[in-house]
């Protein structure tokens, strides 16, 4: 049996068990939209600051949902994989001819799929509430693709944490840290509106900034390779690093001969 069909089987299992757990799905949809609603209303007055790139704060903030959804995907993917390791389900899979990386990638599919589902919902809800995408329909599709790509990359973070620690609690314990990263980015304001220099420095070093800016460029501003390419590069980098790390650790965790 080919690795692709094995991957499909393992991914299907991961997706079905994920969507059978409302506690995994509901927060991914609810939290980013609530945050969007609150921020869009609470910070709407900043659009009156001279030079703010848009007159509608929801246009500015919508992309944060995608990144936040991807963070949730990372944690769900990681928690699911870690609990598989803990219960011995990965051992069960390791006794079949499936390759190690197939087991790993398949296990993250559930988390990634929530992000895909979430992304579509964020976009639809955003459009209903008046989000206007400057790059049009094609831009919206590219935005969605970038969001999904980011979610897959982030699922790698969860997978790595899971394999390295083998404990769902440990993976969940990392959530606040990822959450912190989101708040230390251009989530609420563009970089040149951040007055405190130390904060601006943190924001510049934060990879999430580039993901947010890349997606945001599609919504406000139009096609711009200088924001889009760094976003793709950052997501690719995260993906390569985390999945490599995860499959290394997996070799130690599942010592199959």
């Amino acid at each position: 049996m080919s690795s692709t069909s094995q991957l499909a089987l393992i991914a299907r299992r991961s997706v079905s068990r994920t969507f059978r757990q409302p506690v995994l799905v509901v927060p991914v949809i609810a939290f980013p939209l609530i945050l969007l609603a609150v921020n869009a209303a609470g910070l709407s007055s900043v659009t009156e600051l001279p030079g703010f790139p848009t007159k509608s704060y929801i246009n500015f903030a919508i992309v944060v949902c995608f990144v936040q959804g991807a963070l949730f995907a990372a944690i769900s993917a990681g928690t699911e994989l870690a609990s598989d390791i803990q219960t011995g389900f990965t051992d069960r899979l390791a006794l079949t001819p499936a390759k190690r990386w197939v087991v790993l990638a398949g296990a993250t599919a559930g988390g990634a799929s929530i992000a895909v589902f979430g992304s579509v919902i964020y976009l639809v809800v955003g459009l209903i509430f008046g989000v206007e995408i400057d790059t049009g329909v094609v831009g919206a599709l590219v935005l969605l693709a970038l969001a999904i790509y980011t979610a897959i990359a982030f699922a790698g973070i969860g997978a790595w944490l899971a394999v390295a620690t083998g404990s769902p609690q440990a993976v969940q314990g990392m959530f606040p840290l990822l959450f912190v990263l989101l708040f230390l980015s251009t989530m609420s304001l563009p970089l040149d509106f951040i007055q405190k220099e130390w904060f601006a420095t943190i924001v510049e070093w934060n990879p999430l900034t580039y993901l947010i800016d890349g997606m945001r460029g599609l919504v406000i501003g139009g096609w711009d390779a200088s924001t889009l390419l760094p976003a793709i590069a950052v997501a690719t980098g995260i993906m390569v690093i985390t999945f490599t790390g995860a499959s290394r650790s997996l070799r130690k965790r599942v010592q199959r001969t």
Partner: peptide, 20 residues
């Protein structure tokens, strides 16, 4: 080690599939 969110049939299908 079983997946509490899958049915007995789904377990059979998954493992059978992986065994080719």
């Amino acid at each position: 080690a079983l997946d509490s969110f899958l049915t007995g049939n789904e377990h059979m299908d998954l493992q059978g599939g992986l065994h080719g």
